[in-house]
C-alpha cells in the first residue's frame, strides 16, 4: 500500500502528535493507526519523544470540585462513607442522639477499636499549629512522610462561612503561595501530597489557610482572606 510508505507515515505521525494535522487528515490518520500496528507504533514513538514537554510543566492541582463532580457522575461513593468503620459511625450516632452514660460504657470496647486509628495518627509529628491572628490554634497539622498524607485535626472553632471552603497553602519567602488542597469540613481531614509538593513543603516556612469559593481558589492563588497561619516546624520533617 503506497500510503504506508514509512517516511510519509513518520511525518504524518509527527504532525498528528504535534497537533498540526487537522480535520479529515487527522481522522484518516486515526483510522490508519487503528488498522495498522506499524502506524500506531510511529504515533506512540512520537508521543514518547515529545512527552517530556508535558512532564516539565509545573503541576497544578485542580480544584476539589472536579473530583467531587466526577465521583458523582460515575456513582463513586464518597470515601468517608465507604471507609468509616461501623463502630466509628456508631460513636457519632451516640453523641448525636444523646444516649450517654451506661450504654457508652458497655460499648467502650468497640469505641477503643475506633480510637486505634486516631492513636496511629497521634504518633505522627505535628508540623504546624494554625491559628488566627489573635486567639488559640484552630487546626493541628501532622505529616506522614511515607504516604505523603497531611492530617489536619480541628481543635478550635474556625469554620468557613457558607458557600466557602478553607484551602491550605505553603508559603516560601519571595515565591507565589502553593496550594496544598482544599480542606474537608470534617473534624479530621487529610490531604495527599505528591512528591514534588512534599519537596515544596520542605522549602516553605509557613502554612496558611484562606477562605475560598467552594471547591477552592479558581485561579490557583489565594483569592480570599487569610484566616489562619502557622510556622512550619521543619525539625520534625
Amino acid at each position: 500500500m503506497n500510503y504506508l510508505r514509512t517516511d510519509l507515515i513518520d511525518r504524518l505521525a509527527a504532525e498528528y502528535v504535534l497537533g498540526t494535522l487537522q480535520g479529515l487528515a487527522r481522522k484518516r490518520f486515526e483510522r490508519l493507526a487503528k488498522e495498522h500496528d506499524m502506524v500506531k507504533r510511529y504515533q506512540t514513538d512520537w508521543e514518547e519523544k515529545l512527552n517530556p514537554l508535558n512532564d516539565c510543566l509545573p503541576p497544578i492541582t485542580p480544584p476539589a470540585r472536579v473530583w467531587r463532580e466526577l465521583a458523582e457522575k460515575l456513582n463513586i461513593p464518597r470515601p468517608e462513607q465507604a471507609r468509616t468503620p461501623w463502630y466509628r459511625r456508631l460513636s457519632i450516632w451516640l453523641t448525636v442522639s444523646g444516649l450517654g452514660g451506661a450504654l457508652v460504657s458497655i460499648l467502650t470496647f468497640f469505641l477503643v477499636q475506633g480510637y486505634l486509628h486516631d492513636t496511629q495518627i497521634d504518633r505522627l509529628p505535628v508540623i504546624a499549629l494554625l491559628a488566627p491572628q489573635a486567639g488559640p490554634a484552630a487546626i493541628q497539622v501532622r505529616l506522614d512522610q511515607i504516604s505523603g498524607q497531611l492530617y489536619l485535626t480541628r481543635i478550635g472553632a474556625a469554620k468557613p462561612s457558607t458557600g466557602h471552603d478553607f484551602e491550605l497553602w505553603a508559603l516560601a519567602e519571595g515565591k507565589a503561595p502553593i496550594s496544598l488542597g482544599v480542606i474537608d469540613r470534617t473534624k479530621e481531614a487529610h490531604l495527599y501530597l505528591e512528591k514534588h509538593r512534599m519537596d515544596q513543603l520542605r522549602q516553605s516556612g509557613t502554612l496558611a489557610v484562606s477562605e475560598e469559593p467552594l471547591g477552592g481558589s479558581p485561579t490557583g492563588l489565594p483569592t480570599g482572606p487569610v484566616i489562619l497561619t502557622g510556622k512550619l516546624s521543619l525539625a520534625s520533617i
Binding site: P58, P59, I60, T61, P62, W67, A71, E194
Partner: peptide, 13 residues
C-alpha cells in the same frame, strides 16, 4: 481515585 490524585495535577497543567 488514587490514580486521579497522582496524575491529575500534571494533566491539569
Amino acid at each position: 481515585e488514587t490514580l486521579y490524585r497522582r496524575v491529575s495535577p500534571q494533566l491539569f497543567a
